[in-house]
Structures are given as structure tokens and as C-alpha cells.
Write a protein that binds this DNA or RNA. Sequence first.
DNA 1: TATGAATGAGAGTTCATTCAT
DNA 2: GATGAATGAACTCTCATTCAT
Lengths: 214, 214, 214, 214
Amino acid sequence: MKPLQTFHNLSPGKQERITRVAVEEFSEKGYAGASINAMVRRLGIAKGSIFQYFGDKKGLFLFAFNTAMERVKDYLRTVRDQTASEDLFTALEATLTAGVIFMEKHPVIYRLYIKAMFEDDIPFRSEILRSLREYSFKYFRSLLERARARGELRRDIDLDKAAFVLDALMDRFLISRTVPHLDAGLGIHGCSPEDARQWIAQITDIVRLGIGSR
Amino acid sequence: MKPLQTFHNLSPGKQERITRVAVEEFSEKGYAGASINAMVRRLGIAKGSIFQYFGDKKGLFLFAFNTAMERVKDYLRTVRDQTASEDLFTALEATLTAGVIFMEKHPVIYRLYIKAMFEDDIPFRSEILRSLREYSFKYFRSLLERARARGELRRDIDLDKAAFVLDALMDRFLISRTVPHLDAGLGIHGCSPEDARQWIAQITDIVRLGIGSR
Amino acid sequence: MKPLQTFHNLSPGKQERITRVAVEEFSEKGYAGASINAMVRRLGIAKGSIFQYFGDKKGLFLFAFNTAMERVKDYLRTVRDQTASEDLFTALEATLTAGVIFMEKHPVIYRLYIKAMFEDDIPFRSEILRSLREYSFKYFRSLLERARARGELRRDIDLDKAAFVLDALMDRFLISRTVPHLDAGLGIHGCSPEDARQWIAQITDIVRLGIGSR
Amino acid sequence: MKPLQTFHNLSPGKQERITRVAVEEFSEKGYAGASINAMVRRLGIAKGSIFQYFGDKKGLFLFAFNTAMERVKDYLRTVRDQTASEDLFTALEATLTAGVIFMEKHPVIYRLYIKAMFEDDIPFRSEILRSLREYSFKYFRSLLERARARGELRRDIDLDKAAFVLDALMDRFLISRTVPHLDAGLGIHGCSPEDARQWIAQITDIVRLGIGSR
DNA sequence: TATGAATGAGAGTTCATTCAT
DNA sequence: GATGAATGAACTCTCATTCAT
């Protein structure tokens, strides 16, 4: 019997409940800190069941993490599609804003991503991070390539470097909204969506002057 | 008897050895993951002694962390003093370069900082991070204020936002050199100091156009 | 519904497969160590089925063990029949040689026998072992009685004691070929069939002088 | 801190109690079957203590086993010394008798030996068995060499083969007294010491004729 | 008849913390 | 002041067995 086979035979409602609790637990306590005991206590099921479904803690984490990341990718895909006709900097603003909204609705997922990023001994850490970063860079690269084709960029700008800057700024901005006290009192953490838009506008402005065509 | 009282009565060599081992352990395994068992094994001292010196695990961590961060601050102070007469962007390049050099020499300290940043259940996490970030922002703010006084900045730029951008880019760049696979194959992780300088130059260049006076 | 009833309604092929896997598992890991989980995994059938067929783990073991021992007895019977006209010591040599050959072809069965012999908590351990030993002794006793009738034995030898010696030597010799390092470097374990015959000849020789008629 | 260091700092009485309980548990249930939970329950100490003393289950077993075997070797040494002036077959009888007496007083140790012999997954099984068997063979070889020097043996007898026979018979005889129902009703198991001497005498008699000088 | 999801006791192991010496 | 033995809760993981479908 393959792992996950058993799990996928459960009712969708139960699958969803288990996944949600697992994501929350890993999100709150990281991989090593997460307790399967705590999960089954919250779920009201037997400890053995988790191991029947996922084989071991590693398998559970991988499943929870991948499930969560799929939702991020889905979301990002729709953003890109909706900004296809906009210029680069409008698209960037939209992306950041979308990121803020997503995090507002799914803070748990963002924290899980953070944990995977900076905790050691995450199962398949390298593969996971490499694949995520690749996805993110490809996203910004594709925005930049579209912009270059339209003549929106400085001629001499290196697309890799530019993508790095975009990724760094967006990532840090979003992290600041999640991780308390990372913004040194600037007020990013927990600020209103309107204030967030102000921040986004000004950051984008700096970037436009840095890499834009004029 | 105050905690740390007994610790400071030890010979400087012993104090230094204990501090070093504690910093290494927390740096490698994070707060929750660190094992006092492991530390005393490496140190060859009794487990009870640690509790006598520092009260509990929390006290040990706080001491180790603060000690490590003092070294960072000392280092940063000398960088600022040495670049007092340079223009903003030269000073920024120097700062990033200095950061690369520091990390090269003290990777353990940088990892400890990362762990403190992204792990929950760090004792006094809020206070620690707030104080660190404050220090970092003040550093960049002071550079920017110096630059504004000299007319090196766009008139309309908001210094807080600019400091945010500088801090974000510098931080992400340095993290990329430490955490594997965070750079999506761009080659920042583990690149040679010369390649790092190239990266720094180009990032600074983007920033100059974004916030510089012309 | 009697247990085993449902099992015997299965296709002979399936019965045989289940028996074989069970014997292998018990042979490798002993009774307590054997895992029904592992068996059904290898068989690709439902765990519940095993309990339907055999009631519980005990029933499964008993069936597997008895099935395996039947094969040993069948084999031993043919050996005795084929040596009916030989003198005692030729028959003994033939028996030992046959034992070696059987083990060579059915190591799994021999290991199962060993496990049953020396593990506690074997279900019905006493009955099982008593019956096996009885069978073995009867075998040697019948050889000895035949020999006595032909005047091949010392007058004053006690047949029980002699049977004990024969059984002990044969058993130990065969075990030495299976269990590594039981022969203290004498080279019995894993030796070639030819070398085994040399050993057999010399052991038989000692026995002949010990109990033979002259 | 080395494993066993801590343990040896305990009071001799406590060390002895722990060792005794461990030997009993392994002796009754084998390695895999033994439960550290059960041991600490019987001892009335905390589970963690066992791991502090011995590191892990493997370490505990190794210690318990070696301690038990030392007692066997000590005993055997005194037997050999006391029979130095006897002829081979008298010495053999004394050895077997001594074995019977030892087992009568220490059945737990003998069962532990049996378990180590026939259970798989014993830690360092190969090394343990090789060393034990070597010790046993050397013992019989030394008796045989002494006998050959005195002209008590058949000229053409191979000492290795003879030692094998002695070891096999002695071992099986002693096992028969411990493991129930291994004697097929011959009455070795649990027989009185006097009956045991009778058996010993007759077995020795067979061996004498098989390998003796006349 | 066959299935396989559910169970929960029990396994070995690690750990921060306490306290008598 | 330094020690290190003692603790017990919490951890991940395995297993035979049950029973509704």
C-alpha cells in the first residue's frame, strides 16, 4: 500500500481538516518543533492514523508543505494572467498588493514558507527551496522580459540582477508584514491595506528609477 | 546571588570557551533544537554548572546572543567611522563588502542571527529583534541623513522608505551567501569575494539611480 | 465457521503464496518479531484477510510451522526407506548428508525450526517441540534397533543414550552450517558439500568406535 | 562523559541490582523482546537513568551479557585448575558436572546465552558468539592436548574434530536441562543431579571409546 | 468474503531541570 | 562553587487487532 493512498481514500472533509491542522502546526512550531501528538489531540484521531496515512513525520510535512505551496502558485498564476496587459511597474504593484492580500488571508501559509526557508533539518530542504526560488525568479524574469520587449527597461540593466532586486524587496516587504518587529517601527507589520499600498507605491517608484528606461 | 555573577568569576579563558560553544550550538540548531547536554559534553564540564551560571536555557541563550551581537555592532561602528568622508554610494559599497567579509570570518554569528530572526519561541524574541532592527535602521538612516545634507539624494525621497530598501537589499544579499539555494542559481551563495564585489556594484548602481540626486 | 475453513477455500496458488510468505517472515524474524503488516504488504492483500483465515497471529504461526515441518518429515521418511538395507553407520552418514542437502535447499525452513526451538512465547511451544523431538528420536531409535538386531552395536550400550548422542551431534553439525560463527573457525559454516562429507565421515567414525560392536 | 562511567559511580548494591534485573529481563525475553519499561518498573527508577548509564538498549545488553559471561568464564577457569592432575575423561566428567551445577545455580545466565545464540539482531552478535565459541573450543582443545601428551588419545584422532564432538555433546546436554521438552522424554530436563551424573558417565563412556587410546 | 481505516498501548530515546553531595 | 545522578514528560514510530462497509 503506497503512502498517501490511504489518506486519499478519506472523505474530502477529513482530508482537509487533517491538512489544515498539519499546516498550522508546522507553521507555528517549525518542522522539528511540531508535535504529532499535538496534532492528533486537536484532530481527535488516533496517533497511529497519521502514520498510516503518511508513513512518518517527514511524509506528513512534505505533503502539508506541498499542498500549501500549490495554493500560492495557483494564486500567483492568476495575478500574472490578470496583469498581462499592464506595464512592468503597474504589474509589480499588483503583485505586491496581491501578495499582501494573500498573506492577509493565509498568514499560516506564509509562516510555513518562512520556517522552511530558515530552519535546518527540513526534509528535502534543498530541493524544496531550490524549486520555490526557481519559481519565484522565473516569475519576475518573465515580467522583466515582457518589459524589455516593450522598451520599458534601461538598456544596460542585467535581468538577473534586476530580478534579484525585485525578489528581495518584495520578499522582505511581505516578511515584514508577517514577522513582528522586523520593520524597526516603520509600521509595516500589521499596517492597513491602504498604508501597505502607499509603501508599495514608493518602493516601486524607487525601483522604476533604478531600472526603468528613463 | 545574581545569575551571571558566578559566571563572571570564572577565568576569562573558561568564560570565552563556554560562550563560544554556546554560540555555536545555538547557531547550528536554533534555540529549541540546541541541547545543553551536547554543550556540556563538548565542554567537558558538569551540566549543573550551566544552570548555576545562567539560571536556565533562556538565560544562556540571551547571554550568548547578546555577546555575539556586540561583536557585530563593534564591527559596524568601525566601518561607519572609516567611511565618514565618502559619498553615500561608496559608503554603501563599503558596508556591503564589510558585511561579506564579516560573514566570511564569522559564519557562526550570522547563522545565529538568522535563527533568532525566523524561529519562534526565542526568549524575548520581540525585544531582541526590535533592538537589532533599530540598530540597523539607525545605521542606514545616519548614512542617508549625511547624504541628504550633502545634496546626494533626490529631494522627494522619504528617508524611511529608502532605509528600508537599503536594509532589505543588503540583508537579502548577505543571507543569500549563507543559506544554500536561496539564490536560484544566480551564484551568490558561496561566490568568490571578487564576484561578490561585482554584485554589490550593480545593486548599488540600481539603488543610486533609484534614490540618487540625478 | 471454523478457522482455516475459509483459507482452504482459496485457490491453491494463493494458499501456497500466503504460506510461503508467512514461513519466510517467521523464519527471518521469529514469532514476536514477525509483522503481519509486513506480510500483507508483501502479499498485496488486506490485513483483515489474515485474521479471517487464521483467527490471530498464533493461528497463522501454527499453520505455517506445521506446514513447514511436514516437508521435513516427508524428506526424512524417504531417507530412511532408501537406507533400509545399509548398515548403521552408512545410514547415519546418509542421514547427515541428506540433512545438509535439505538445508542447502530449504534454509528458510531450518531457520524457522531454530527460531521455534530457542524463542520463548512461541504458541504451544512445548507441544511443538515435544512432537518434533519425539519424531527425531524415534528416527534414530529405529536405526539403532535395526542395528542391534543385526549385531552392529556394543552389547552394553543403552539405546536411549546412544540416540541422544546421535541426535546431538547431527543437530549441532547442521546448526553449525546455518548459524555463522558457531564453529569457532573450524570451517563448518558454509563449507562445500565435499568438506561436509569429510566432517561427517570423521564424526561417524568416532561414533562407530564409541557404540559399535568392536 | 563516557557511557558506563556514570553507572560505575553508583553504589555497588545499586549496580548489582540493575545488572541482575537487566540480565533477567534479557534472559526471559531475548534482546528485541526485552522491555526497558519493564526493567525500570521493577527497579523503581526513572527510565531516563538507564539511558544515562548505558547510552541505549544496545549498550545495556552488551554490559549485561558481558557481565554474565565473565561469571561463566571465572567458573570454568576454576574447574580446569582443579582437574589439572586428572585424566581426560575424569576431567570431562568434572566439567559436565560443574556445568550442571552452575546451571542449577544460574539458570538465568544459561538462558541468556541461549538467547544470544539463536536470536537475530543481537548487537555485535558475530563478535559475541565468535569470542564465546573460541573460549569454549580453547578449553576443550587444552584438555585434549594435555591428554595427547599423556598418550590418552587415539594416535589418528584429529583434535579439532574431537573438540567439536565434546563441545557439541556437552552443550546439548546442558541445553536439554534448561530448555523444556528438548529431551524427548528421556528425562534429562530437570532430572536430579544423581541422574545427571549417570547420564554424564555414559556419554563420557561413549566418547572414551570413540577417541580414547584403546 | 474481502477490505482497509481506526485504534491505543507500548516501544526506545532525548531533554531541561533539580538537588544532595 | 562544582558536580552529576535522578527525574519524568514528551517525542516519533510500530503493532496486533477490530469492525463497518
